[in-house]
Design a binder for these strands. Structure first.
Length: 415
RNA sequence: CGGGGUGUAGUAUAUCGGUAGUACGUCUGCUUUGGGAGCAGAUAGGCCGAGUUCGAUUCUCGGCACCCCGACCA
């Protein structure tokens, strides 16, 4: 991608009233734009990151035999009345159309997925299975805050699993625990993301959250370093101040962001909709459910909080918008342009995603902007590098600079 | 929803009850060319409504928006 043709504009200064690091950096670097509090547009760079995150999750959900679907955002009131949440969920957006019909904007999708699968589940032979989607969620937060971390509209991966027995449900739940850990590992935040015991909300005693350590977090968790798990402060009174696994009482207190949450729904939503199957003896049995969420924007924002530094964004390679920022320092010597173009073509041919800064700007401005964008590798082509038949490679995350021949460069990105 | 703060150009800001200034950006020209460069010129602004006043961007009231603290939060 040629930067001269790319829809992006960076700023030297962040909007004055933004305090959240993720909002400041993402807006300065032109990854997102704020339409209103808690409601953001993803610009091309930000969308590339979001899509990388989405694809990692998709791959892992498919591994767990999840099947991707896409449910609507506009939900008939009646479905939400069936579960009682039309009245009980106070952050539900409700809209009324010209004919007076009332709808909810989907805050979550149990009310849609259960009636949906009811059409397909009739026998024990139809179970188990799981469906998931990436879809906008709407929540009427009284106070949107922390930049992109707590929005009123945001994209979430939500998966719903359906089972015959509690054992089967629990077994799948355990699989998802591992799957989630792997997902966050792939995204570069595994080391600081903890499986966390949390409140089960209105349908079970406990659930599990995945909490990533960062000062920007809204949650307080207690970490057991022996087990590498944590307990959310919201339930610590029930648990006493003790690790539920090993009994360790020497817990470390940290602030964190909830990047994922999994629940054993059991029959909480299948029962109101009378979602049942026929067992071997012909009896009707209520289907058991689990649900598993990850907020994509929240993951993105959390990565910014974790990795961003005083110069700007820093992206882990797996979710970076591009792998290489090819920075061409403008020169009267036409060979510089030729070399940059050649390198761009060669890298691209090797499947490397390259953003080529081909604009006629001064070096200083280009470098500062490159740091701000946070692409993992900056490759500089200039009169200097041309003379030495090498290119300069700077790793954004470490700041390490090295001179490399093109072969050495290609090796860096060999799959 | 309770409390607090802030609304001036695309962005960041200054001043002032009396013609609203600066920097960055953007546009033109020249210079410069490895860390957001320089010179000259141009462009563009008082959140909305009411009130006080000869005159309001400034003072008062109301609204709206945004940010922060709290409450809330699958």
């Amino acid at each position: 991608m040629r930067q001269s043709k790319f829809f992006i504009k960076t700023r030297k200064e962040a909007p004055a009233d933004e305090v959240a690091k993720n909002a400041k950096l993402l807006m300065r670097a032109g990854f997102v734009d704020k339409l209103q509090a808690g409601v953001y547009t993803y610009l091309p760079l930000g969308l590339r990151v979001l899509k990388k995150i989405e694809q990692i999750i998709r791959e892992e959900m498919n591994k767990e035999e999840g099947q991707e679907i896409l449910m609507p955002s506009l939900h008939p009131k009646e479905l939400w009345q069936t579960t009682g949440r039309w009245d009980s969920m106070d952050d539900l957006y409700k809209v009324t159309d010209a004919s007076g019909r009332e709808n909810a904007l989907g805050a979550t999708h149990e009310e849609v997925v259960v009636p949906l699968v009811k059409q397909f589940i009739s026998s024990y032979r139809d179970l188990p299975f799981a469906v998931y989607q990436f879809q906008n969620k709407f929540r009427m937060e009284l106070r949107a805050k922390s930049g992109i971390l707590r929005g009123r509209e945001f994209i979430m991966k939500d998966m719903y699993s359906f089972h015959r027995t509690e054992e089967d449900m629990k077994a799948y739940y355990e699989r998802m625990k591992k799957s989630y850990a792997h997902i966050f590992e792939r995204m570069g935040i595994g080391a600081r993301t903890y499986l966390t015991y949390a409140s089960g909300g209105s349908f079970s005693k406990y659930s599990h959250e995945f909490q990533t350590l960062t000062e920007a977090g809204e949650d307080v968790i207690y970490i057991c370093d022996t087990c590498h798990i944590a307990i959310n402060k919201e339930i610590i009174d029930d648990q006493k101040h003790m690790c539920p696994i090993c009994g360790n009482e020497d817990l470390r207190t940290e602030t964190s962001v909830e990047v994922g949450n999994i629940f054993e729904l059991k029959t909480k939503y299948s029962a109101p909709f009378n979602l049942t199957y026929k067992d071997e003896s012909g009896g009707d049995v209520t289907v058991l459910m689990g649900c598993y969420g990850i907020g994509l924007g929240r993951v993105l924002g959390t990565v910014v909080e974790v990795y961003g530094d005083d110069k700007g964004l820093v992206w882990p390679r797996a979710i970076a918008p591009f792998t290489v920022h090819l920075v061409e320092i403008p020169s009267a010597d036409a060979n510089v342009r030729a070399e940059a173009e050649k390198l761009y073509n060669e890298l691209t041919a090797r499947g490397v995603e390259v953003l080529w800064d081909d604009r006629d700007l001064r070096a200083g401005e280009k470098f500062a902007e490159s740091d701000l964008l946070g692409i993992p590798f900056r490759v500089v082509v200039s009169e200097k590098t041309l003379a030495g038949e090498t290119v300069e490679v700077k790793e954004r995350i470490t700041g390490e600079v090295s001179m490399r021949t093109r072969d050495e460069l290609f090796k860096l990105f060999a799959v």
